[in-house]
Design a protein around this nucleic acid. Structure first.
Lengths: 191, 191
DNA sequence: AAGTTCGGCAAACGACTGTTTACTGAATGG
DNA sequence: CCATTCAGTAAACAGTCGTTTGCCGAACTT
């Protein structure tokens, strides 16, 4: 049922999805839906959890990376691009419902993005470059990284669906932007 | 009719909107809709144009600003916050449909964001700090600014609807992030 | 003054919707 | 071996939906 829903949400909104539509796609009777979910919103929340589990794995993979700033940036952009390609339907669902019409789903996504920012902040604190940084500045930088990751993933998503070659331009731009941010980070003097 | 649609889209998706729903809200008969639009998608595109016109004005207001980097940042964040407050329904519509289920609308929004980035890039080129920057680097920075503006506006949107006091925290964070970016900009040596 | 466009209406069409109800077979567990 | 839970079904309910058609008055145009 989750797979059926995800497949339908490729070119549709969660709010415009129908119970009958999902069960038809899954090859079941309409009543079968209510055996598993009370709502379509509940199905949406379940999809959020499914989608963000793999994102969490991806983020940890990037953070665990050792090495210089340059190669860390390259790895991060590569990992994002690959993740979007391999989990396209999940990523599209997240992008579409992050500001979508179903409050429960929006809140689930936002809460998880907050946790990502906290995790990134904790990882940043361990790096030598961050010595003397206040908690607040670290959080600010972490949110900047997370927002940038989200924007980049969205851009990859649309590029891959239109013209795969444009993905390279997006990757190059994202790398430059990360380099500029890490430059500002090195010269930061505190707020 | 545009106003009726915008009002309904406050807690709904364009894809889940109905012709009858719009006409009912507008106090008209269903058939009246087809006198003005062939599709609901067409109504969506019209709303995009209406929404982005005011954003365009806002961007020009920020770019025309003279003065040092610090006060320019403060002004930019203030203008964004005020714009979100005064055009909440328009901004929410844009955020929701940017990755929404209606292709025509998505493309209209993305095309306009591209034009914004071009405009910002042209303005950046005139500043003394950008001497020696390649076209590509300027464009990269402009896209970073536009993406940051979009993220900030989304954050304001959600904050203002939940707890207005959280808006201050978001404004402060956005200012710090812009300061960090302009720090990276000053030390940029080209790609 | 005649003609034409414009924006509106009511009514009707079949198709699709969410949800409940009562029922069924299979698996599970004591 | 009997009871119970589980996951499924068909059928029916009253609504809502998008869209087309034919009609109408008002406002322009000429």
């Amino acid at each position: 049922m989750l797979d059926a829903g995800l497949h339908l949400l490729a070119d549709q909104n969660l709010a415009s999805l129908g119970v009958r539509e999902v069960t038809r796609e899954a090859g079941l009777s309409p009543a079968a839906f209510y055996r598993h979910f009370p709502d379509l919103a509940a199905l949406g929340v379940a999809l959020v959890e499914e989608s963000l589990a793999s994102v969490h794995v991806m983020i940890r993979a990037v953070l665990a990376e050792a090495g210089g700033a340059e190669e860390l940036i390259d790895r991060a952009v590569d990992v994002i691009e690959r993740h979007v390609r391999e989990h396209r339907t999940h990523v599209r669902f997240l992008a579409r419902e992050r500001h979508g019409g179903v409050r429960q789903v929006r809140e689930a996504i936002d809460a998880e993005l907050d946790r990502f920012a906290a995790e990134v902040g904790a990882a940043l604190a361990l790096q030598p470059v961050s010595q003397g940084w206040s908690e607040r500045d670290l959080r600010m930088l972490a949110e900047l990284y997370v927002d940038h990751m989200v924007s980049t993933a969205s851009a990859f998503l649309e590029a891959q669906e239109a013209d795969p070659s444009r993905g390279q331009r997006i990757a190059a731009t994202a790398r430059l932007q990360l380099r500029l941010i890490s430059l500002g980070r090195r010269h930061w003097q505190g707020s």
